[in-house]
Amino acid sequence: MEDERYTFSSLLNKMMEVERVLHDIIMPLVKQSDTKISKQLLIYLDSTERRVSDIQWVKDFVVVEMTLEPITGLEIDGILGDIRRIAEDNNIPLDRKLTDIISIVARLYEDVAEKLRYISIEASDVFTQFRADLLSILHRT
């Protein structure tokens, strides 16, 4: 399989797409239950468009020579596949599904933040913040 490769802009485009895909995968799950984690995730999903707009903002704002350095080593499509599999697995209890998905997405944000750190600290910080917001759901529940 061909490695995923991104430019700065194409990675941020991908992450905007990821936000919307995650919304579509997770929303049906949180609507199935009334637990604390579901409620918290619902709030998180309601701000999907704000996160997309944060990514778009940093994409427009950051212009540096390093934006054409190839970004490799992220397997975002594979991660989305894993999340889909978890969401569709009827053998996993719902709350467990949600905590697993939160952990995977938080790790993705961390990896993206790490990759971007050498290109743009502002862009990296966006994903560090997303990760913190997401993990705080786990801490609160």
């Binding site: 490769r5 194409s10 190839p70």
Partner: peptide, 17 residues
């Protein structure tokens, strides 16, 4: 290796290198 994988194309495609 990295050079050989550069994506070539029209610059208005944001994934083109």
């Amino acid at each position: 290796e990295m050079a050989s994988k550069l994506k070539i194309g029209y610059g208005l495609d944001e994934s083109v290198e």
